[in-house]
Simulated assay, not measured.
Amino acid sequence: MFFGEQLQNVRELKGLSRKDLAELVNVSEQAIWQYENQYTVPKFEIVNEFKRIFSVKPQFFYSKPFTKNISTIEHIAYRAEDRESRKKAKMETTYLDFVSHFIFEFEFSVDAPQSSIYSLREASEKLYYNGDSKVTDKKSILQHLAENARSTLDIQNNRDLLYKLEMSGISILEKNMGSHIDAYSTWTKEERPFIILGNIKKSSVRRNFDLAHELGHLLMHRLIDMDSLSKDEHKVIEKEANDFASYFLIPEEEFVEDFKQIKKKSNPYSYVEMKMKYMVSIIALEYRAYKLGLLSYEENRYFYASLNKYKMRQKEPLDEDIPVVKPGKIRALLNFVFENHLLVLNDFLDKYNIELPFLESLLGIDEGFLTKFKATIREDYYGSNVIPLSPSGN
Rank of each mutant, 00 (worst) to 15 (best):
R11S: 04
K164H: 10
L345Y: 10
M1Q: 09
S306K: 00
L349A: 01
K139L: 12
N158Y: 02
I103A: 06
G169F: 00
D227Q: 06
L285W: 06
H101F: 15
L165T: 00
Q30A: 14
L356N: 05
F373T: 07
S179W: 07
K291Y: 11
H180K: 15
Y78M: 15
E36P: 05
T40N: 15
M226C: 13
R192T: 10
H217S: 07
E174L: 13
Y247K: 06
N157C: 09
D366S: 08
E286P: 00
S124C: 07
K43E: 13
L127W: 05
E5A: 09
N69M: 07
K64M: 12
Y278T: 07
E299Y: 08
P268W: 01
R18C: 04
F98Q: 00
K265T: 07
K311D: 09
P323Y: 10
D321F: 14
A183E: 06
I73E: 08
L249N: 03
T376V: 08
Q8E: 15
K315E: 09
P251M: 00
N385H: 11
I73M: 08
V256L: 12
E125W: 01
Y95I: 02
E238Q: 01
E49D: 12
L356W: 01
V205R: 07
I196G: 03
L215P: 03
L24A: 02
L334P: 11
L162A: 04
K291Q: 12
Y381C: 14
Y269G: 11
E273M: 06
S281Y: 02
Y287H: 10
R79V: 05
Y271D: 06
L362W: 10
K329M: 11
R83L: 04
I196A: 08
E45Y: 11
P193T: 04
A284F: 01
D366M: 04
V324P: 03
I70W: 11
K68I: 13
I70Q: 08
V27A: 01
I262P: 02
P323I: 05
I196H: 03
V386L: 09
S28R: 11
D258W: 05
V280Y: 01
V236W: 09
K291D: 14
E81H: 15
R192C: 12
I76V: 14
L142K: 05
D380K: 10
V99S: 03
L285K: 05
Y297I: 13
I155N: 04
L229T: 05
E122M: 03
S168Y: 07
K265V: 14
S124E: 03
G368S: 01
L24R: 10
L165Y: 00
A80N: 12
K311T: 11
L292H: 12
S361V: 14
S392Y: 08
Y95N: 01
R121E: 01
